[in-house]
Amino acid sequence: MTYEHLTLERRDGIAVLTINRPERRNAYSLKTVDEFHAACDELDGDLTKRVLILTGAGPAFCAGIDLKEGTNNWPEDLGMVQGRYRLQRRLASMVLRLRDIPQPVIAAIHGPAVGGGLALAAASDIRIADTTARFNAAFIKLGLSGGDDGASWFLPRLVGPSAAADILYTGRFVDAAEAKTLGLVSRVVEEGRHLEEADEVARQVMSNSPFGIRMTKELLNYTLDAPGLRQAIEMENRTQTLCLLTEDFAEGVAAFAERRPADYRDR
């Protein structure tokens, strides 16, 4: 598929999805959202791509919704409330789609990640920032609530409820160094090295069994919502039983015994 607002590159087992609207600081419109879903559909059907790197073109990661496109532009002939609710659900669906694809997602962040851009970064599995990265919950500065696109769900789990409240109530910017201290990002690298570092991490992930990685993402998705330890362990038990029955598990054990790299074939 040809995209106008995105690029989707494939190399080895890695896919790189770039929001490609640098003139709008990678703010997204309804067309961007539609293309984002189409790209995720492609990845959902291509298990040879084992890791997704999400980034933005130009000087920003993502500036959230494109306010120049308006907030009352849902194409169906509906009332104002009904149309805006449909629009809100569609915009927020990007975060859910990102969690549903089988590939772990590494956000390679440079420049501002604000509003919906903050949410997309938070929804990723791993966040790598260069020193130019800045984060804020822009919604609160626009007369809206601080929570949008899952930000009020992800942030307390990433940085704790107190730091999340600080970010969501004030709308202040969090720079890369503070983001690392809070746990919002796992790594901070020199300016311009975010994609290089993301690629390195992706290759570390790909050294493990494909099915094991996919099951780990399912496990993390489940345990973030699990009501308690017992339920989380039951999900782990299910996952490990499935993995134990694969040919790749036997290969992993043999490679460990023979002190060689495993040759995983997703079997």
Rank of each mutant, 00 (worst) to 15 (best):
L30T: 08
I167K: 05
E190W: 04
D44M: 13
N221G: 11
E234L: 15
I213H: 01
R238V: 15
L155N: 02
L219I: 09
T55C: 14
A202V: 11
N136H: 13
P261R: 14
G183S: 01
F173V: 10
T223D: 06
D34Q: 11
D12N: 13
T32Q: 07
T18F: 05
A39C: 03
N26W: 11
T132V: 12
L224G: 14
R25I: 13
I128W: 04
G192E: 08
A60R: 08
T131V: 10
L78S: 03
A177P: 00
E4H: 12
Y3I: 03
P59S: 14
F61G: 11
V205S: 01
S29G: 08
V174M: 05
A151E: 02
W153P: 00
G83K: 11
A165N: 00
V95F: 06
G83I: 07
G79Y: 07
D199C: 05
R99L: 10
L229H: 14
A250Y: 06
E35P: 06
Q88G: 10
I106Q: 03
R259E: 15
S124T: 01
D175Q: 06
Q231N: 14
K141E: 09
A39F: 04
A163C: 00
E4P: 00
T181W: 00
A129Y: 14
D46M: 11
M80G: 03
R99E: 13
T18Q: 03
E69N: 05
P261N: 12
T239I: 14
T18G: 02
C40H: 09
L242H: 07
M215H: 02
V201N: 01
T2Y: 09
V174I: 15
L43W: 03
R99F: 05
R134C: 13
D77C: 08
G192C: 09
V16E: 10
D148W: 00
Q88N: 11
F135V: 03
D66Y: 09
Q240F: 15
I19T: 08
L30V: 09
F256S: 13
I140D: 01
A119C: 03
L118M: 10
C243Y: 14
R97H: 08
N73L: 01
E42Q: 15
D248I: 09
D77F: 10
D248H: 08
G228A: 13
F36D: 05
R172A: 13
L244R: 14
L184W: 01
I126E: 02
R10S: 13
R11P: 00
D225N: 13
V16C: 10
Q204W: 04
G115K: 04
P161V: 04
R214G: 00
L87H: 04
D44E: 12
A108W: 10
D46W: 10
D148H: 12
D100C: 06
M235Y: 15
P112S: 14
A129S: 13
L6S: 08
V188N: 06
S186K: 12
H5V: 06
